[in-house]
């Protein structure tokens, strides 16, 4: 476990900012309890200071996980968000997509969101923007990246992809072995 270097923080923050924009400040500067980002075995954890201090005394090979895993760095230095970060992305998401009940299961099995399944979408969503995906009763299901801007989606046919799948809560079951 160690703090992130400046380059690593930059990469991670850029990825998070793609979903929550300026609200990233609220993650760093928490009112309730100070939190920090820690890197352990290539994964970035969002930890409260208290549990981080407890975790210091655990030797690296023995430490499995601490706090909330936000994602991991791949070997080429890119940062990939895990579904576990949804708890922090959902409250601060800038752009949201709601999907209809008939589109929930396909999305939760790891498929992209089709136009036919689109319930509603935040206005002015640009292309290739990170969005959080909710069902119609406002339960966050995952997140993805928009394929088209809101304006462009109107012209598309119902089978075309609107949001590229990035992570969904189905991964808690599907990738149980590798996720944590």
């Amino acid at each position: 476990m160690r703090p992130l270097t400046e380059d690593e923080s930059k990469v991670a923050f850029e990825k998070l900012a793609n979903y929550i924009g300026k609200n990233l400040v609220h993650l760093v500067d928490r009112q309730d309890e100070p939190h920090c980002f820690r890197l352990h075995k290539g994964r970035v954890y969002y930890v409260s200071e208290a549990s981080m201090r407890l975790g210091i005394s655990v030797a690296r090979p023995n430490l499995v996980s601490l706090g909330t895993c936000l994602g991991k760095f791949n070997k080429s230095g890119k940062f990939k968000l895990h579904i576990t970060s949804l708890d922090y992305l959902a409250p601060y998401a800038k752009y949201k997509v709601w999907i209809k009940p008939n589109g929930e299961m396909p999305f939760l099995y790891g498929n992209h969101v089709l136009k036919a399944h689109l319930g509603r979408i935040t206005e002015d969503t640009p292309e290739h923007q990170g969005v959080v995906i909710y069902n119609m009763s406002d339960v966050p299901l995952g997140f993805g990246v928009t394929a088209r801007s809101t304006v462009d989606t109107r012209k598309l046919d119902p089978t075309s992809i609107i949001v590229f799948h990035q992570a969904d809560v189905g991964e808690y079951l599907r990738d149980e072995d590798t996720l944590f």
């Binding site: 160690r2 939190h35 981080m52």
Partner: peptide, 15 residues
């Protein structure tokens, strides 16, 4: 790397 046991305040301001 920065030390693990740095105060969270300084880390926050850097972030």
């Amino acid at each position: 790397f920065d030390p693990i046991e740095r105060s969270v305040e300084t880390e926050k301001s850097a972030s």
